[in-house]
Design a protein around this nucleic acid. Structure first.
Lengths: 362, 362
DNA sequence: CTGTTAGCGCGTTCAC
DNA sequence: GTGAACGCGCTAACAG
């Protein structure tokens, strides 16, 4: 059996309450007894029982972080930064909180299951990251779960997904919204200003907020150039929107499909960097040069994009900054933005994978 | 306040003991009362208190996973697979266990802190992944912590680090050891058989087991070719071993250092893929062609290596498989290997970044 | 400043 | 089959 508070108390010749006090440092304790207690703790190698503490104090040091895919550096970067803020790191004597990284795999059911599990653990905080599944029933279910969490004192933060109104109880602490729409728009504007007119677009997985926002940005750029869906060119552009996912393979397949729909396509914007690399690979396999024959652009600016061939033009999403901020918010070490919603800016990163189309080249 | 067992019992008109029984399904309960209870649970949206349960039953559904860097796909892949095995996924009606991914950042202190935190949570299992810090004092401290964990019933699995003897109590359940040495050896043999003689090596961070094993493999290959440290060529090869880290920047710097030591170096093996990309970038910036002027190879075979320029020759480490196996082991859904130690094979992946040196080319 | 006393919510004997 | 009662280990009142 593990050693308990009572064991320490017995050894130190004090009451268990006193031991609890020196351990938590909330009450005045004489230096002499404190030392005696600390010595007993050390001698017995005592470690508090987190469950007993959580039960008695009704607080826990667990923070849940829901991600769609831990293996995706997008979430790895986010989670890493977040964890650095809340975790037991250097210079955090209290030991910090424990991050529970939950991998939903993008599955709505899994998401709900994890929220229940976190409720069961009476988590101190919950951070939902990445795009949300856009389904009314599911959103309502998530909102209901979150409402129960917030009303039992759990701090909820959204990072990379739209704000969510809760049916009742305290609202979500903060929503950090990435400017996906703006970034996508600037990216397509970049392609347009290079002279491209036949621009393909590979979307993310269906029914996700990020997928929709990025696509909306793409369309907004087109429309602003007078290539709205009511124009012939706009109509053609619509036909060059191919459904994809967030993995390399779907980018590869989508590129082939694009070629099938229009083998004179001169540029492709992809839902994210991984997809973009799949697109590049497909073009390469078809004997097309990037960006000589076709320009390709990604989204997110993950580290590998710079070493890819060619170095990927993309949109930077400040994942580390956002993750760290989410961590600070959930820990209460940072004030929530006014209105509870903050927009995280994105930035166009022009590199080697985009260039003017052949016909407008000198 | 959250709804408790007693609330459910009151509503169903039974005792709380009965509710507990239907929820855990360990005792016979009449169908009629079971239904009444379940209805009450649903109506009240009851969620068990994990802490109270853990306290009373002395078991928890938390599994700690220690990683050196969540943002590194190496660990992302490992953790993802592991989590898929233990987590609350589809077809796991019991809800599975919750994975607590702890980011140590490779810091020994952080590692110990997390082990304490996990002990405090009375974790059902703990998986230590990635290379171990090779320091006698630290190893002893880790062993002591693990001994206490195992003796209080926590299942401990090592994944990607050497086996560890515990001072007392039940031993570590299993150690999954990656064949880093063998892989590194085959990689350098590959470079040698291409005709390279001036081979640089960029190590991982100092004092880590993976760093040492991979370097040993490199040296073993050299020695097997008669280029042992006692020969002139071997001595030269020793001087081409540059200390690095696991990040891209250290690869970049190391490549420049290599050039400084011997600007006629024709091949470089790096501690991992990320470092290798940094090496490639440095060479490119110096106007050197890879693999025309210099061959470069990585280690791990992370997904981005295939899209890098040029596609990276590397050694595949089956991270998903190993992670999944570690997950099954810690859950007790797989038998530990005989002796508690299993070697996970690695495989040479020859791609475009390595080629014969100029002087032996046709 | 310190000891005593109640629970926190649940699992689990032991009776019935 | 079911209920009453106890205890898991700790914190938070309440006294002193």
């Amino acid at each position: 059996m593990a050693v308990t508070l009572a064991d320490v108390a017995a050894r130190a010749g004090v009451s268990s309450a006193t031991v609890s006090r020196v351990l938590n440092g909330n009450y005045p304790v004489s230096t002499r007894t404190r030392e005696r207690v600390l010595r007993a703790v050390a001698e017995l190698d005592y470690v508090v029982n987190g469950h007993a503490r959580a039960l008695a104090a009704a607080t826990s040091d667990l923070v849940g972080v829901l991600v769609n895919d831990v293996a995706d550096p997008f979430f790895g970067l986010l989670a890493s930064a977040l964890q650095g803020e809340i975790g037991a790191g250097a210079g955090r004597p209290d030991g910090g909180k424990l991050a529970i990284v939950c991998n939903t795999g993008g599955s709505p059911d899994s998401e709900l299951t994890y929220l229940t599990l976190l409720e069961r653990q009476r988590a101190a905080g919950v951070v939902l990251t990445g795009g949300a599944v856009e389904d009314a029933a599911h959103s309502a279910a998530v909102a209901a779960r979150l409402a129960r969490l917030t009303s039992s004192g759990t701090q909820v933060v959204l990072c990379g997904r739209p704000p969510l109104a809760l049916p009742d109880g305290p609202p979500v602490l903060a929503s950090l919204v990435f400017d996906d729409r703006g970034g996508a728009r600037r990216l397509t504007e970049h392609l347009l200003s290079l002279g491209h007119r036949r621009i393909g677009y590979v979307t993310g997985p269906p029914g996700r907020s990020t997928t929709r926002h990025r696509l909306e940005g793409h369309r907004a750029a087109l429309e602003a150039r007078g290539l709205g869906p009511d124009t012939p060119e706009g109509e053609a552009a619509e036909r060059l929107i191919v459904a994809g996912g967030y993995d390399r393979a779907s980018g590869y397949d989508a590129a082939l499909e694009l070629l099938r729909r229009d083998d004179a396509v001169t540029a492709v914007a992809a839902a994210n960097d991984t997809v973009a690399l799949g697109v590049c690979a497909a073009f390469r396999d078809r004997g097309l040069d990037v960006p000589g024959d076709v320009s390709v652009a990604g989204f997110d600016d993950l580290p590998f994009g710079i070493d890819a061939f060619p170095a990927l033009t993309t949109v930077r999403v400040p994942l580390q900054e956002a993750g760290a901020r989410a961590g600070r918010l959930v820990m209460g070490r940072s004030d929530p933005p006014p209105g509870g919603v903050a927009t995280v800016p994105t930035e166009l990163m022009v590199r080697a994978s985009t260039a003017p189309p052949r016909d407008v080249r000198p």
